[in-house]
Design a protein around this nucleic acid. Sequence first.
DNA 1: TAGAATATTTTGACTATTCAAAGTAATGAA
DNA 2: TTCATTACTTTGAATAGTCAAAATATTCTA
Lengths: 231, 231
Amino acid sequence: MASRTIENYLKQLWLQQQESRGKYVPMGKLAALVGVTAGTATTMVKAIADSGLAKYAPRAGVRLTRAGEQLALHVLRRHRLLELFLVEILGIDWSDAHGEAEELEHVISETVLARIDLLLGHPSVDPHGDPIPSSAGTVEAPVLCSLAELQAGSRTAIVRIVDQSSEFLRFAQTSGLVPKAAVVIEHNNPQAGAISARPDGKPPVILSMAAAAKFLVRPCPTAGKQRRKRS
Amino acid sequence: MASRTIENYLKQLWLQQQESRGKYVPMGKLAALVGVTAGTATTMVKAIADSGLAKYAPRAGVRLTRAGEQLALHVLRRHRLLELFLVEILGIDWSDAHGEAEELEHVISETVLARIDLLLGHPSVDPHGDPIPSSAGTVEAPVLCSLAELQAGSRTAIVRIVDQSSEFLRFAQTSGLVPKAAVVIEHNNPQAGAISARPDGKPPVILSMAAAAKFLVRPCPTAGKQRRKRS
DNA sequence: TAGAATATTTTGACTATTCAAAGTAATGAA
DNA sequence: TTCATTACTTTGAATAGTCAAAATATTCTA
């Protein structure tokens, strides 16, 4: 069984690979995500690669093997189910759930996880709208676009929030920009570098392009609604 | 903060001290409880003593200091609340809850614990009838006697089961000897070395004295109902 | 294309925890 | 009181994970 530490490396690796479309993840990046020095990451990654969970290319980066992806997805499943459980059943604050789940994900047993899954009715997304991998290790990864890409006048609904930091989530919550919320784009002038979005029944919110990009929405006029399967 | 490992040593130490009425716990005993070799226990205990959580007397044993007891009781509180939570809310099997809680007790946060406590309505005992320490670090330790001490003909109710092993708990459950169950002692001849107890609405169960001693009951004709406070 | 700046790897060292085996003390039986 | 047994402690070594700093590549800039 993979240690807590290794589970963390794998999870971060998987998440990062999503961002960078499967490219090799550079050591510095991984180290920062896991919260260790680059030297430590190099050492660990070599060990992980030796156990067949990743491919390590010196000075280029790391990439998960199929086996590594499987393991990462099991960790992610635990993480996301726990987040939802903490929020829905225990009433833990949205913005705190991530941190709490971070610890629990490494010790929860399959038995307990199955019970949580059942209690929640086999949910498909966590409180941030992130898809929950299946117990078989597959995730639905719908192609979404962000608030930043919409034109003034469009109506859409928030599906997912990419930034998991408590500060950002607290801001999102108070603004009314939560998953499932309906939103109208009031202004979006690329030259301005900021947009104005109005959630249903709430006052409009001004967002920098960087902040707007953290809200993924559907429907998405430009991208249609294709889905991709990911092992 | 005490590590997982140290939390375990402290918890076992506290439990063992209850058995042996505050006497020094010998190394061999502690080692067996924690599941390490005696040498390891000696090393760890010296470290624990250095940090002021226990008093170590070479070749005699260890005993918790007040600070050590406090910490142990916080761990025990987490453990017992979790057990109850697993059984009541998640529907985990009685006999499995102990093992699951063993892991979770070291990672659950105060925030989550408070939510669990609330959800369960600030319970005072866990599924085995063991008292749950308060968040201030105190336990009610009522003086109870065991099934083995009752005379034939007495009626009583099971309060607590001392053996936490899944095998024993499974046996207790199928026999109907669970906390809160009413029981009548049908036979108890000290010479025979075994007793016969009949739980309400169930067939009588034959128990060796050793097994009978694992069921604590109330009311208890001989001991009255004094309570002791324990810090 | 020569530095300079940046990223990565290597090295040596440290902490926490463990075990096996050897040494030491205490206990108990004859 | 003298062994033998048993319990405990010490020692030396191992593993997992970490860091700081030195060494090495790579990439960018002028």
